[in-house]
């Protein structure tokens, strides 16, 4: 069937339009007629713009003249029939594939965030050379005073006692050489922020005077130290650094293409995700402590009772999803469950 369509011709590298018409032959022969350019051309010798949704497709002849149809659907239909089919264009309009793509996108996004990024981060963190980790640790240690920590006001006897408790605890751990790349160290500081204990890269654990005063007995402090040793054992600090790097790279790659709205949403998502990773680390550290407490004392009461003390001290009710630490109630319940299940 022979069709004729109207349109215009654009001369090579020139914005001037010339009215034109083109006869679309059944055998893929194009017959163009216009003021600057006429003749017969086989479709294969021309360049057709890619099929993409309903966008009009133009034909560029080998001397650079371009034919633009006034009724683009007409030309598009004819081109679909006579040119090589575009697989990708078909896929983009295939309802079944679109549904599958939606489901796959949700599943892949979810599992990447929940499993992929943490697993990859752990893998990378374990590949970080010890010297680098030590450097990171030394640097954060050098900032400790600026963060509101000052020299401990405890007597040197009491400090020596706690150091002994710490080294006993570390030595009691089975296969400790495999657990820690460097021997962990305990540092005691006084803090404006109150009772606190945390681990840093390079194996330093910081315990505040206020935490030591809060604890009823040294077995509670041992439990806290075990929790922090759990963070070091799992290389949580390096892992967090890698995780936040991955998230920020991913955010940069995604947002690079989108609008300001996406920027805002992305930063909220990144924050929420890093908080959930942090909560997961706390669970891992709790489990580490629970495992050893249970091995040594057949219960996890010391850690539970310390969490109870902390809970009575901290009244602030931050919603779970907005917190770096999981809900203390949940953590205590899990610790109790741990000793019951064993």
């Amino acid at each position: 069937m022979i069709e004729q369509i109207d349109g215009h011709i654009l001369a090579p590298k020139n914005a001037t339009k010339y009215p034109a018409s083109m006869v679309l032959g059944a055998n893929g022969m194009l017959t163009v007629s216009s003021e600057p350019f006429s003749g017969q051309h086989q479709l294969e010798t021309t360049e057709i713009s890619a099929a993409l949704g309903n966008t009009p497709r133009n034909i560029t002849f080998n001397n650079g003249h371009v034919f633009v149809a006034s009724q683009s659907q007409h030309l598009n239909q004819w081109l679909t029939k006579h040119s090589k089919p575009s697989v990708i264009n078909k896929l983009e309009q295939h309802l079944g594939l679109i549904v599958v793509a939606c489901i796959v996108t949700v599943i892949v996004t979810y599992s990447t965030i929940v499993y992929g990024v943490p697993a990859a981060s752990k893998l990378i963190a374990n590949m970080v050379p010890h010297s680098v980790e030590k450097q990171v640790g030394d640097y954060s240690l050098s900032l400790v005073e600026e963060m509101g920590f000052s020299e401990s006001s405890l007597t040197s006897d009491r400090q020596a006692e706690l150091q002994l408790l710490f080294s006993d605890t570390v030595n009691k751990l089975p296969q400790q050489a495999e657990l820690f790349s460097q021997p962990p160290q305990l540092l005691i500081f006084s803090s404006k922020e109150g009772a606190n204990a945390f681990a840093m890269a390079g194996g330093h654990i910081i315990l505040t005077d206020e935490m030591i005063e809060l604890a009823d007995n040294d077995s509670q402090l041992q439990a806290v130290l075990l929790h922090e040793l759990g963070h070091i054992r799992h290389r949580h600090i390096m892992t967090s650094i890698v995780q936040s790097s991955i998230l920020s790279i991913a955010a940069a790659m995604i947002v690079g293409e989108a609008s300001g709205i996406a920027d805002t949403l992305m930063s909220v998502t990144v924050l929420g995700t890093s908080l959930s990773y942090s909560r997961h680390h706390e669970h891992e550290a709790d489990n580490f402590a629970a495992e050893h407490l249970h091995n040594w004392y057949q219960n996890t009461d010391s850690l539970v009772s310390l969490y109870k003390l902390l809970q009575s001290k901290h009244q602030i009710d931050i919603p779970d999803w907005a917190s770096t630490h999981p809900n203390l109630e949940d953590r205590m319940a899990e610790l109790k469950k741990y000793s019951q299940n064993q």
Binding site: Q4, D6, H8, T16, K17, Y18, P19, A20, S21, V23, T31, S33, S34, E35, S38, G53, N54, T55
Partner: peptide, 29 residues
């Protein structure tokens, strides 16, 4: 058909619509 089309080709297409204001249009869905 072709001949008649060629006959009108001396005038530019835009001359048919002498409007001096041209708006951008977006056809995406």
């Amino acid at each position: 058909n072709l001949d008649s089309a060629q006959g009108t080709s001396a005038t530019s297409v835009n001359a048919i619509t002498p409007s001096t204001k041209t708006s951008f249009k977006f056809h995406g869905i």
